[in-house]
């Protein structure tokens, strides 16, 4: 990976971190409501994989921890923030909220709140791609604990038996809310669970964006070349609680300390500094610029945008003006 790309990724990941931390503040200020799940600590997963993918071309979906995947796919951070602020300028007009970010024009096919729900949806997108004959692939990011849903096994089986172009990315952060993986899951290494479906899989360090990128390149090459599904497991850690109502009380402090030493942003930054590609001053400047942009553009936009009008309450319940509702007569 050349140093310009690394610098850009550092910028993007730092932006993602600051964006999420600003969401935290906005939630405390009660500007954001509902459930809020932050991605801090896991950035290298989305950025490593999607850097290797063709965003705006490949289709992507994930769980409720979805802001950053949407942004990397090209959804404007302003409209993501406006959605969190429940404004009509938000990507879903204020109807969706944090767990349901959608950006169909960027082929970001959504955040879903039901654990395990996206597995078959992503396989379905892959089925449609195959029928249409394009070279897109379908990429589905989900957590480790989601793999205990039946949909995981059902989807892997269908994906393989029909050789669908789908890449499953498991962001293994070792917990499903407060339950540690070894208390809920018989096989802790998730990539091993896939072998029963004859799907190639790999487990790599999810904190090192270059490692993720390299593994994703291999995985994507496999899927795009028509060889069928692939499963990539990324070992990672979330810094914040599961959602804003969770304090992480169940996590050992030394475990948290250990993972904080493997921060994906700091690791990449130090690598760039050690290689003489940037200085600590450059980094601080970058950080300051990001903070300014978030405040002056993104938060300002969200704050100043209007709420959706009351008429919107019923608008999208069903598709409007579909002639076939009346049997096609006009």
């Amino acid at each position: 990976m050349d140093s310009e790309v690394k610098k850009r990724l550092l910028h993007e990941m730092l932006f993602a971190r600051r964006f999420e931390e600003r969401c935290y503040e906005a939630y405390v200020e009660r500007k954001i409501g509902g459930f809020l799940h932050l991605y801090s600590g896991e950035e290298a997963c989305a950025f490593g994989v999607l850097e290797a993918a063709r965003v705006n071309h490949d289709y992507v979906m994930t769980s409720y921890r979805d802001h950053i995947h949407a942004i990397k796919c090209g959804v404007d951070p302003k409209v993501v923030m406006a959605e969190l602020y429940a404004k009509v300028t938000g990507c879903c007009k204020g109807l969706g909220g944090s767990m349901h970010i959608f950006g169909a024009e960027h082929r970001f096919m959504g955040g879903y709140a039901l654990v395990g729900g996206p597995f078959p949806l992503a396989a379905g997108i892959a089925k449609a791609i195959k029928m249409k004959g394009g070279d897109e692939i379908s990429i589905c990011f989900l957590g480790d604990a989601a793999n205990n849903q039946g949909t995981f096994h059902e989807s892997l089986n269908m994906a393989k038996v029909w050789d669908l172009p789908v890449l499953y990315v498991c962001e293994n952060n070792l917990y499903g809310i407060g339950t540690r993986i070894d208390r809920s899951t018989a096989v802790v290494d998730q990539y091993k669970r896939v072998s029963g479906y004859n799907i190639p899989s790999e487990q790599v360090d999810g904190q090192d964006v270059e490692v993720v990128y390299a593994a994703a390149q291999k995985a994507i090459e496999h899927v795009r070349s028509g060889k069928g599904p692939y499963f990539l497991e990324l070992m990672t850690y979330r810094y914040r609680g599961h959602s804003m109502s969770d304090s992480n009380a169940y996590r050992p402090k030394d475990e948290e300390r250990m993972w904080s030493k493997r921060d994906p942003i700091i690791m990449l930054r130090d690598r760039l500094i050690d290689a003489g590609e940037m200085s600590l001053e450059d980094y601080k400047q970058m950080d300051g610029d990001i903070l300014d942009k978030i405040e002056d553009e993104i938060i300002k936009f969200a704050e100043e945008s209007p709420e959706p009008p009351l008429e919107m309450l019923e608008k999208y319940t069903l598709v409007e003006n579909d002639p076939w509702v009346n049997g096609g007569s006009v």
Partner: peptide
């Protein structure tokens, strides 16, 4: 309707 996220709605 499905329940909207926006508080007022």
């Amino acid at each position: 309707v499905p329940i909207p996220y926006n508080h007022t709605l």
